[in-house]
Write a protein that binds this DNA or RNA. Structure first.
Length: 825
RNA sequence: GCCCAAGUGGUGGAAUGGUAUACACGAAGGACUUAAAAUCCUUUGAGCGAAAGUUCAUGCGGGUUCGACUCCCGCCUUGGGCACCA
């Protein structure tokens, strides 16, 4: 019989999914293991070969853990709210939920055809009202705890998509989705105070097992810096301008002050600024320049002086002029900086506009200092203070805390930690998202007094606030959500006072649903609670979470934040800790042939269905594991796929070559060697899976099969079944078929992971490498464990080596046990 | 500009201080076949050599070491991230 994956693969998939072997069991006495992959956005394009890579990798881990006796939860679901579906709906006039249903069906069928061991009974869908009820519930908790607030702010506005974008969604000043140039626009937006958690989001990284580069990226994104707020008194007014600085050691060289164009000092003191028209014009121009362009180093520095305004340097008590410049950002620090010769932008600006400059830091390099002193070059590093009164002679690092203490004793400074991270814009003016469950009541607003007054959360018993049906899905021209056009839905009663009120018509961003989905898999059908306490206690945290590097600063950070918030409000037992993921790894992208990104426009997209149809799911799984290191980007190579298929066929054909009984008597040398190799392979495959070195795990199995093929003997039944067990996470269908063919009644995927025999792995003989001056000159077979003396004897006896040494003097002999001997002459 | 990865045959890659090029693809030759496909066998980093051998080669230049793809210093290139964060 020929290997025919088309026949055997669907057969075993039916067996697995019908018998429910992959179902995670609640209330089990076994140790749990929760493995998770990022759930996909079910796009109309179907499954990508990139999904296949990471889903197979974690499937291998899930399958291995089951075989190791764990109660494994490996779930799957759909992150189905989002713009592509909405855009398709706009174009074709089909309801997004219809498209979503169709797409998820395609995805599910494709996924089942790959034999991934997901527990399909726990499937979730973020667009299901039963699911988003709880996404809305979380929003209400954020609101009640003061972490959700409405604010009129300058937001990033995409004129093409007609939505506000989070800072994180703006790529190089353009909209992440459509590429249009992002503008600034003032809008009332729901904001989430993720910044309250900045410190914990950094600190708690120490307690989790994430790849180092993931930790680094998150830390950089949050961008913690330690410094001080320094107060600059304004002449003629009882007021200060506050400046955040990390370089308080340079305070004595501060000769002018720069404000961000949007700094509220300007608005407040309009009357005092002599050239206010010019300043306001500058502010208007700055509004439509992206932060990235504003802070671009190659760009020419621009600025305008606030004529009529002077401040005093709190250290030197000298007068300083005040300027505005767009490279100073409103949102960072206090939106103001003091300027001196120790910052390149300040330096450039002072030279351009003829503002006085002074230096106060001496670099160690004498030559450089000459230039710095003469204001020919800007020095930004740490050095030794001069021109700094009582602090002269101190190093920058020791001076900083002393200067802060000195200034704060005068009430002019205080230490401060600042973050790059900004609050999260949570409103979207779109249809296909979770409605924000808030109601605005005029009556409550008039009596409330506070800025948030009038906003009332929908009562929890009235959740979910379901998306109403609309005829048109596109956002309105005014930028409001299409929901705003449905008067019947918008008009409601205030949950607090019962008067006429209006619903919030904005929806949530697509990360809202993925913030907490790991909790829902645990208890997907609970209509009373977010998650059952005892189930959460058993299953959380996620033991191993894999996803793309591109989600490190978005989804991964947001979901850690939301979990910490839920922990704080005790939405689940706090004993499970405040980090949702114990371990986080990431996969490399699968590129198109030739190393370019796969895309429809380039026509280089590989459809996994085609590969499954032509070669089989096991071949696709195996190939994607074999193609290269898991965390590395890798180009697809269709020609390479046949290698994996050939390997599986070899196994199929060789499985006929079994000894029906345990080898009688002493097996031949050949047989012993083969068994030794098998045990080495068991060891290697097991270890490589843990390290995600799937490529070398596959190649070691290939080596074993090659040796098996070359051997004159067969394997006995025990050895064959051990091999099938280690193969089964990679090629589960083939393993299952051969397992059953060999007369086994149970399923291969339910077997115990095999143990290797230490004794069989120990070598009796080793290959001793003989070097002279570090160059390989000979290889001798020797007894394992031989001593240096024995080795020396052996080597010096060798004619070949003797000839090479000749009359030279042996200076030294380096010996590495069981490996190498190096004669230095 | 800053930060982080990576650079090895024709190609994907292996080796993390000790035999550089495992495994796989591709290519060439052969066996089987009327023929082709499939399969199997052999060869396959480059140079010199009839062979035994031997020299060179892991982006480039130095260094440490008995010994370096691996560690250190300086550069180049590619990919990713960030945007002068005061």
């Amino acid at each position: 019989m020929k290997y025919n994956p088309k026949k055997i693969e669907p057969k075993w998939q039916d067996v697995w999914y019908e018998t429910g072997v992959f179902k995670a069991k609640n209330g089990s006495k076994k140790k749990k293991f929760y493995v998770m992959v990022e759930f996909p956005y079910p796009s109309g394009d179907g499954l990508h070969v990139g999904h296949c890579r990471s889903y197979t990798a974690l499937d291998i881990i899930a399958r291995k853990r089951r075989m190791q006796g764990y109660n494994v939860l490996y779930p799957m679901g759909w992150d189905a709210f989002g713009l592509p579906t909405e855009n398709y709906a706009i174009k074709k006039g089909v309801h997004p939920s219809v498209i979503t249903k169709k797409n998820t069906e395609t995805f599910r069928t494709q996924m089942k055809s790959l034999g991934w061991s997901f527990d399909w009974s726990r499937e979730i869908d973020t667009t299901d009202p039963k699911y988003y009820k709880w996404t809305q519930w979380i929003f209400i908790q954020l609101f009640k705890n003061g972490l959700a607030y409405k604010a009129k702010i300058n937001i990033n506005w995409c004129p093409s998509c007609k939505i506000g974008l989070a800072n994180e969604e703006v790529v190089a000043g353009n909209c992440e989705r459509c590429g249009a140039k992002v503008e600034k626009r003032e809008k009332d937006q729901w904001m989430i105070k993720i910044t309250n958690y900045a410190d914990r989001l950094i600190r708690d990284l120490d307690s989790v097992d994430y790849l180092e580069k993931i930790k680094t990226q998150q830390k950089d994104w949050i961008g913690e810096s330690h410094g001080a707020i320094v107060k600059f008194p304004v002449e003629g007014v009882e007021e200060f301008i506050e400046v955040f600085t990390t370089r308080v050691d340079t305070i004595f060289s501060g000769t002018f002050l720069i404000l961000a164009p949007g700094h509220n000092f300007i608005e407040k003191h309009k009357g005092k600024i002599e050239n206010i028209e010019e300043v306001l014009k500058y502010r208007e121009d700055a509004k439509n320049v992206s932060d990235m362009d504003r802070t671009n180093q190659d760009k020419d520095v621009t600025g305008v002086q606030l004529k009529g305004i002077l401040v005093r340097n709190p250290a030197t008590n000298e007068e300083m002029p005040v300027w505005v410049a767009d490279f100073v950002l409103e949102q960072y620090g206090s939106g103001a900086v003091f300027a001196d010769a120790h910052d390149k932008r300040d330096f450039k600006m002072a030279k351009k506009y003829g503002i006085a400059l002074r230096t106060s830091i001496k670099p160690d390099d004498e030559l450089l200092w000459q230039k710095v002193k003469n204001l020919e070059e800007c020095f930004e590093g740490d050095g030794t203070l001069y021109n700094s009164a009582q602090f002269d002679g101190l190093k920058s690092a020791e001076a900083r805390p002393m200067i802060i203490t000195w200034l704060s004793s005068k009430g002019l400074a205080q230490p401060k930690v600042s973050y790059k991270l900004r609050d999260w814009v949570f409103s979207r003016q779109h249809y296909w998202g979770e409605p924000i469950p808030m109601v605005f009541c005029k009556k409550c607003a008039s009596t409330g007094g506070s800025a948030q007054a009038g906003w009332q959360p929908v009562g929890e018993k009235d959740l979910p606030v379901k998306l109403p049906n609309v005829k048109k899905y596109q956002p309105t021209d005014t930028g409001e959500s299409p929901l705003s056009l449905i008067n019947k839905w918008v008009e409601t009663k205030c949950p607090k006072c019962g008067e006429d009120a209006k619903r919030e018509t904005d929806t949530m961003p697509n990360w809202a649903g993925s913030n907490w989905y790991y909790l829902r898999y645990i208890d997907p059908k609970n209509s009373k609670k977010l998650v059952d306490e005892s189930l959460a206690r058993y299953w959380m945290p996620v033991d191993w979470y894999n996803g793309g590097m591109e989600h490190t600063t978005l989804h991964l950070l947001y979901s850690r934040f939301i979990f910490k918030f839920l922990w704080d409000i005790k939405a689940f037992p706090t004993s499970i800790g405040s980090e949702p993921y114990k371990k986080r790894t990431s996969h490399g992208m699968v590129l198109g042939e030739g190393g370019i990104k796969m895309s429809k426009s380039k026509g280089n997209v590989i459809n996994p269905d085609v590969i499954v149809k032509q070669y089989g799911a096991d071949t696709l799984r195996l190939y994607e594991m074999f193609m290269g290191p898991f965390e590395q980007m890798i180009p697809w190579d269709t020609k390479g796929v046949v290698g994996s298929r050939r390997f599986l066929e070899k196994i199929w054909n060789l499985s006929q070559k079994i000894y029906p009984v345990i080898r009688p008597g002493t097996p031949s040398n050949d047989g012993v060697e083969l068994r030794k190799l098998l045990h080495k392979t068991i060891k290697k495959v097991g270890e490589d899976i843990e390290l995600m070195k799937f490529n070398t795990a596959v190649s070691s199995m290939m080596e074993f099969v090659n040796a098996y093929q070359a051997s004159s003997e067969g394997l006995d039944k025990k050895d064959l079944s051990d091999f099938l067990k280690i193969l089964s996470p990679f090629a589960p269908h083939l393993a299952e078929e051969l397992w059953s063919n060999s007369g086994q009644k149970e399923l291969c995927c339910e077997q115990k992971w095999p143990k290797y025999d230490e004794k069989l792995i120990e070598e009796e003989n080793i290959l001793l490498i003989v070097q002279i001056n570090g160059k390989v000159r000979d290889k001798i077979i020797a007894k394992s464990g031989l001593t240096q003396k024995e080795a020396e004897k052996l080597v010096l006896k060798s004619e070949k080596i003797q000839a090479l040494i000749g009359k030279s003097e042996v200076k030294k002999i380096v010996f590495v046990p069981n490996k190498l001997i190096n004669v230095v002459i």
